[in-house]
Amino acid sequence: MSWAAIILTFALVDNVILSRLLGVWPAAGARGGMRAAAGVGGFMAVLMAGSAVGGWALDSQVLVPLGFTLLRTPAFVFLVASLALALQAFNGRFLPSFLRVTGVSIPEIGINTAGLGLVLIATRGEYSAPESLVAGLAAGAGYFLVTAMMTAIRERLEVEPVPRALKGFPLQLITAGLMAYAFMAFDRAFLARVLGG
């Protein structure tokens, strides 16, 4: 795949949230305003890029040469979890306001399927190291974009009376579902035509 194809695929066509349904919770369950959402989105973007590259290194340099391919799942789970913890620690040390604003806690970032999912996609797609990095960054950008849109919509809904049973998380899921339909305009045929001519 060309660079443009990788970027468009991971950011729009196979959007992490809207197409692969990974990392839905941090986006849909988020509380707080736009700054918190931007924090979560940025956090996830860095995590995804790091995970994709780390996953490439782990898989092609360690697991495959040693013949430990059965241990992929535990290895990847550990990779993502430790990356998340490291990022968390970094944030706690250098960006203390981040934690206050986002309220992201260890379980919530650790239990994040977006990082793990991206490692799995990148390794199963047999991307090279730079390709994994670009894929991770593009996926992160797509994640950031969708989170920002969902938060802006949620902020608008917060001032409106909505049906009681749907208030909050369910409505965020429905919002995400409608957004997913809208984003289906960017399908594989679209990608092929745009890049083909």
């Binding site: 349904l21 839905v24 409505l171 965020q172 899921l173 429905i174 995400a176 579902g177 409608l178």
Partner: peptide, 9 residues
């Protein structure tokens, strides 16, 4: 995918 999100919602 959107249908899945709607159903879960």
């Amino acid at each position: 995918a959107g249908g899945g999100l709607l159903c879960l919602g």
